[in-house]
């Protein structure tokens, strides 16, 4: 569903993403781990078409993002670290607007069901987003993704800054989505969350995908060890 082939992105002399090959299938939750500057966010931006690749390809549902920028966006939803919504509109109106952009012709009642499904409290539906917490905004983001009924979801550090309970709730939402067959790519720093939620885990540093494994195959402390090894090894190389 989500695929990169020998993907490379350079900013001047700096190689942000180096020869990356990724393959995320439907129903998978792929957690991309890595320190700051590892190239995680660049990867996400390449998937979203916000930046153009220097070399290689990004494919969504088999379509090249660089060639079919708009069509590919029909299939993916995006939740950035700080999910931005229009502060003067209510949560419901934001959903209505963004759902409308995806050509969705959903009735008000359906939209409300989606908000409820995303876990937003009923009382918050008609409040302006300017008063929302980050967790609440993320829920609207999920509702938008649900409304879009997209086949893939890309999240950039979605749980940073969420308290453990909100983070937990959010993880459960992702599981529901993946049960529906959505391919999910999530970048994170949170090793614990990655192991709990993810089906597959990739560790990236300096633009290179160092290791990949199934979440069920590693225990938490093992993951930490592997992660540190990869990152340290990298530092030593440097």
């Amino acid at each position: 569903m989500l695929q990169t082939i020998k993907l490379t992105k350079k900013y001047g002399d700096v190689i942000a993403v180096n020869n990356l090959d990724l393959q995320i299938n439907q129903g998978e939750i792929y957690c991309l781990l890595g320190p700051n500057g590892a190239g995680k966010t660049t990867t996400v931006n390449l998937f979203m078409g916000f930046v153009a690749p220097t070399d290689g390809k990004v494919l969504i549902n088999g379509m090249d993002v660089a060639l079919n920028a708009r069509e590919t966006k029909q299939h993916i939803s995006y939740i950035p670290e700080n999910l931005a919504l229009y502060p003067n509109l209510t949560g419901f109106e934001n959903l209505e607007f963004f759902a409308g952009l995806s050509n969705g012709r959903l009735a008000d009642a359906d939209l409300k069901i989606l908000l409820r499904e995303a876990g937003l409290q009923q009382s918050a539906f008609d409040q302006r987003v300017s008063g929302y917490s980050k967790g609440m905004r993320q829920k609207v983001g999920v509702a938008i993704a649900l409304a879009k009924d997209s086949k893939a979801l890309i999240l950039d550090e979605p749980t940073s800054g969420l308290d453990p309970q909100a983070s937990n709730e959010f993880a459960r939402l992702l599981e529901i989505l993946s049960d529906k067959g959505v391919a999910i790519l999530m970048t994170t720093h949170d090793l614990f969350r990655a192991r709990e939620t993810g089906t597959r885990i990739g560790i990236m540093s300096d633009g290179v995908l160092r290791r990949e494994f199934n979440a069920k195959d590693v225990k938490h402390n093992e993951l930490e060890q592997v992660y540190l090894e990869q990152v340290l090894q990298n530092v030593q190389e440097a």
């Binding site: 979203m48 916000f50 069509e71 966006k73 939803s77 995006y78 950035p80 050509n103």
Partner: peptide
């Protein structure tokens, strides 16, 4: 930041 959100849509 809503610019990114807009761009993520078709």
């Amino acid at each position: 930041g809503t610019w990114r959100m807009l761009q993520s849509h078709n």
